[in-house]
Design a protein around this nucleic acid. Sequence first.
DNA 1: AAATACACCAACCGCACTTCG
DNA 2: ACGAAGTGCGGTTGGTGTATT
Length: 400
Amino acid sequence: MGRSPCCDKVGLKKGPWTPEEDQKLLAYIEEHGHGSWRALPTKAGLQRCGKSCRLRWTNYLRPDIKRGKFSLQEEQTIIQLHALLGNRWSAIATHLPKRTDNEIKNYWNTHLKKRLTKMGIDPVTHKPKNDALLSSDGQSKTAANLSHMAQWESARLEAEARLVRESKLRSHSLQQQIGTSSTFASSSSASNKAEAPPPPPSRSSLDVLKAWNNGGWLKSSEGSGAIASTDLESPTSTLSFSENAPPIMNGIGGENNNNSNNNNNSNNDNAMPMIEFVGSSGNSSSLVKEEGEQEWKGYDSSITTFSSGMHEFTMAMEGTWVHETLRTNGSHDDIVEEGFTNLLLKTNSEDPSLSSEGGGESNNGDGGSNSHSDFYEDNNNYWNSILNLVNSSPSHSPMF
DNA sequence: AAATACACCAACCGCACTTCG
DNA sequence: ACGAAGTGCGGTTGGTGTATT
C-alpha cells in the first residue's frame, strides 16, 4: 500500500529546535499531553511535523531523561545487551533507565564501537576479530546455540518492554485522573519507554568487559582511575531502594512479585541490588531516588554464579513466556520442545558441547590466545550475567 | 591565527509494524 | 479483510565544537 508522508514538507521547519519551539512543545504537552503527534504541531503552534515533535520530546525534552556521560556500569550494560540483542537500541534502552535509544545508539557508535574495534574485538559479534580462525565444530555449535538463545531472549525482551510500557501507561492514566502537582514528571515517564531497573553488577566475563575493567582504556573514561572509582555513577531510574537492605524487586506497581528475583540475592554481599519498583499509585512514585550507588561501586566484587537464580528464572520462563508464547508458535516446535530453558540449562551445566570447557578445550587446544579461550570459558558466567540482567528487568509485570 | 581533521550528537529519513475505521 | 493513519525504530546525515597541524 502506499505510504503517506508523515507530514507535508511545505512550510515546515527542519533542523535544530529553538528554545521557543521547545517551550511551546513543552507547554502544550504539559497541558494536554501529546495526543496525536500529527495534530500536535498545529495545536501547539509549531511549524514542525508531528514526527519531529515526537522525536524532540522523546529524545530531549522529556523531563525524565538523564543526560551526560555514561557511567561505567551503563557502558557495561550496553555492551552486554548489545552482545545479546545487537542494534536493537530500544530494547537496550529499556534496561538503561532514563537513557533514550537514540542516545545509546549515538554513544555506541561514537565511543563503544570504536573502543571495541581498537581492542581487536568485533563490535558486531563481540568476539576477538580473528576469532573466526579458531572456529571449529564445537565452537560453532556453542555460538549457534547462544545465538539461538539470544534470538529468543531478544524476542522476550521486546515483549517485556512493550508490556511494561503498556502497564505504565495504564497506571499513569489512573494517576492522571487523580491529578497531582507532580503529574508532569510522572506523566512523561509513563508515556515513554518502560523504565527498567539498573542492571546487576554483572561479572565481566566477556573478553570485552574484562578488558574494559582491566585494560588501559579505562583511562579514556574520564576520571576513572579505578573500576570502583567515585565516578561510577549509578544508573538511575524510578526506583526506590530501601536504605539499608537490598531492595526487593517487585513488579510494576508492586503487584506482582516474582520470587525468582529474591533468590538472586541469597548472598547479599555480592548479589545484585534488588530493586523495588515503585508503583505508579501514590505520590512517592514520582520521586526519583538515586540511591544504591554503593551497591554499584562494589560491582567488581564477585557475583556468585546465578545457579539458583537461573533455575528460578528458567522455571519462570517455562511457566510463562515459553508456555504462552512459544508454544503457540508452530514454526519453532523444535525450540519449544527442547525449550529455551533447556538450552539455557544445557549451556550452563549439562551439555558438554555447550559448556565452556567443551568449547575451549576442543577448540583452543592449539594454543590459541588466552583471550580466545577465556571467551568461551566464560560463556557460563557471561550468559548468567546477562540472564540475571534480564531477570532484573521489569519483566515480572502483572502481564506475565 | 588559520586551516583542516576529527568527534560528537541532535535531528532527519524511511521502512516496518500496529491500530483503527 | 483491507487500507490509511499513526507510531516505533534503526540507519544516516549534517551542524557544531574541539583538537591538531
